[in-house]
Structure formats: structure tokens, C-alpha cells
Design a protein around this nucleic acid. Sequence first.
DNA 1: CAGTGGTCTAGACCACCGA
DNA 2: CGGTGGTCTAGACCACTGG
Lengths: 236, 236
Amino acid sequence: MAQPKPHAYEQVKAFVKTRITSGEWKPGDAVPSESALMVQFSISRMTVNRALRELALEGMVTRIQGSGTRVAELHRISSRLIIRDIKEEVIERGHTHTSHVLLVATEKATAPLAKTLGLRTGSKVFHTTLVHLENGIPIQHEDRYVNPMAAPDFLRTDFTQFTPAHHLLIHAPLTDASYQIEACLPGRLIAKLLHIKTSEACLAITRCTVSGVHVASVARLVYPGTRYSFAGQFQP
Amino acid sequence: MAQPKPHAYEQVKAFVKTRITSGEWKPGDAVPSESALMVQFSISRMTVNRALRELALEGMVTRIQGSGTRVAELHRISSRLIIRDIKEEVIERGHTHTSHVLLVATEKATAPLAKTLGLRTGSKVFHTTLVHLENGIPIQHEDRYVNPMAAPDFLRTDFTQFTPAHHLLIHAPLTDASYQIEACLPGRLIAKLLHIKTSEACLAITRCTVSGVHVASVARLVYPGTRYSFAGQFQP
DNA sequence: CAGTGGTCTAGACCACCGA
DNA sequence: CGGTGGTCTAGACCACTGG
């Protein structure tokens, strides 16, 4: 026996999950009510409630107050996509991370940039550009603008030691973010910096992070397509 | 007033969240214990527990039994990456979806394919290839192998009406999946089918889905880089 | 209206951590 | 050992849905 006594709420979750994934209960079908499961498992309603609430969070069922619980229509499959510090990621693979710092500057915001950062055109913004290397091989070109209101000490960082993302994660805790993942060809400059041909496809992530009331940073990260891919797993 | 009476557990979540995002409580700092918050808010422990448990799920805090609750080290922000039926997605944008069905066949599995599908080499597998169009413009090339054990009626589907993903979502409810997102250049054939140049970068998703005990399907989806990108938002 | 889920309480027992 | 979180109970009131 693996677990002599699985928690009650987990038993309920497993019970419902199994009926759904086995196809016994089809999308749209009603799931037994809390009171029914309460009797069936001889447990209190709070415990059943927790089980069903978690299943709803996971997208397995849909709950409507006053109406009931039903098997979710299409199990849209989903997984967590995580924003991490690339240095952490490289180190976790047991490799060494280094950075080439190409630019550390204060500039005046252009109109579109000011707009996304929530500043006035011409305001001071921090601008950094660097290339991240894994075991000496370039894997990411990072071009980032930072809102001085969100991270006033940003430029004091030694970017050969700490990544811009690391500074921001510490000094401007994230509250919101949006991202866009696309495929593109690198420009001549980026291709040269990444040691790839201009004809090699790249993954590009454009990311905008919010910390409290400030839009903290907008960054464009370009990865050589042959050296980097996202991978992930789902467990709905 | 927006909400005259926010739920108690929401209040606790908001309280803790605010201290964290404002920087008042830094990563590693202790969060008040359940009993402390219980007194402070004059609510029961179960309610405090729910608030902190949800914050832990969202990655804002770390909880260790017997030790306490602390502000999470790096607020790795995360969002749900959702994989959906492309037809649904196109229709949701208010556009029309059509398919060019290029191949619907039963084949014998090659060794590597059989391995990923959990079959014996030479077993029957279903194979479909199609191009999905949004308002008549090609946006995805789909090349898919399906395990007949998981979806025996797969080939009966009219793929001009229903996408392969749709059939699978209904007849082989997902239990697990893994994916890989990468950038690549299309081959000559795919470029032609998508009406793009062979030098145009593409996003490619390779996805493997599991339904119950069977590996149900493995698919490679190629999107023209100029016409498609993933986007998402985080709200921890 | 009866039945559903959404929330909350005031206790309780347990497993675990650190001193 | 005391304090922590993890779980559970047996009630309760409310808001909402459906017939």
C-alpha cells in the first residue's frame, strides 16, 4: 500500500476524476451534488466542497450556484507557463551561465514605449541589452526597457553577476504580466551576436511585467530556434 | 463601493498580497501564522487556512508544516498556457474556419512512432494531415498520428466539419499531455501549403496527449510566424 | 419552493519543526 | 515541548437556480 489513508478530499477528487477521464461521465453530465457525495463518502460537506472546488479550479468541472456541478465541456488542456530567471534555469540544468553586457543606459522614452510603460514621452527610461550564454554558447538576446519608478536602482546592478530579471524579481515583485510568443528571423545584428545565420528561425518572447501600480519592464527575448524550445507538461 | 462585503478569505488574501507586492514583506520573511491572522481578522482558522492555501497555490507564499508560512523566494509568476481546438479559437475571433484535408489514412507504425504511442512496431495507426484556414488564409499545418486503441472511430469523422482535436477531446478525454514549442523553417511542402516562403520562420508545437492508459495522439502543428503568435496574461 | 453551491464557525486531532 | 500547518467535522446562513 502506498498511502494507507489518503485524505478524504483527495479520495473524492480521485473518484470524480476517474469517472470523467474514463468517459463514464461525459461533458455536460451532472456530477453528484455535495450532499450526495457527503452521504456516499460519509464525510462532511466542507470536505466535499473543497474537493469539487479544486476540481473546478483545475478546469475538470463547472460549478454554478443554485444549479449544480457538471463535467466541463471540453477539457481545455492547460499548463502553467512560468516566468523564470534564465540564469536559474541554466544553473538548474547543471550548466554555467554567463552574460555579455552590450548596453546599459538611460534614454528618453519614445512615444510608443512611454505608452506601454505608462510614462510621458521623453521621460527617462533604463535600457539594457545583453546576450546570455549557456556553457559559453549564446542562447538568448535580451533587450529590455525598465521603468525607473518601479526599480530606481536598476542600473546599479552588476549585470555580469545578476540578470536584469533577477533584480526586478527582487526589487519589483510581479503582480501582473503579459507575454507573446512568436517565431521570427533575427536581424543581422542579433544573428551575429547569437552566432547564427540570419536565415535561422528564432523564438521571440515579448513580455511586459507589472509591479503594483507601475508597468515595470518590457523585454524582448530572442532565442535561437535550434538551441532552445519550451517544453511543458499538463496534468489537468 | 464595489463590494459592500468582500468574503473574509478574500480579505485575508488581499491583506497578505498587498504587503508582499508593496515590498513591505520581503521574500523569505515570515507571514503571520494562521492563529495570528485568525485573531487579527476575528475569523475562524478554516477561513484563514483557505486564504493562505490559495496563496500558496498561486506561488505567493511557501508553507511548511510545523515551520510556518513565508513569502516565496522569487515570485515566479506563472500563467495557464491553454491549448485549445483551433476551430474554436478562430470562431471566437469572429472569423470563419475551414480545413483542407490532405490525408486520411491507416498506416503501419514506424519504430519511433510506435514507441511514443505505446504500440508495437508495424501496428495500425491513423494518420491525418490538414491545413487550417482562418478567413481563407492558411494558419496551421497539422500532421497527426492517432492511436486506434484510444479513438477507434477517429477516421469516421468528417474532418471538413470537425477538427481531429475536436473528435479526440470528445472521445478520448485528456488525462495528460506534454508539448514542445519551437521555432523552425518550414520544409518546401509545408511552405507551399501555407503559402509562405521557405525562409519564413514558423512556430511549431509538437504535442503528445494521453487519455487514460493510452497515449492517444501525437501531433505536429506548424504556424506561419507572421500570422500567428501565442499570447497570454498572468494574474497570480 | 426545494435543492444547489458559497461561505463561515468553533471546535478537534494529527504530523511536523525547532528549540 | 509549544507552535505550526494539514485536515476534518457538524452544524449554520446566505444567494442563487430551477421548476
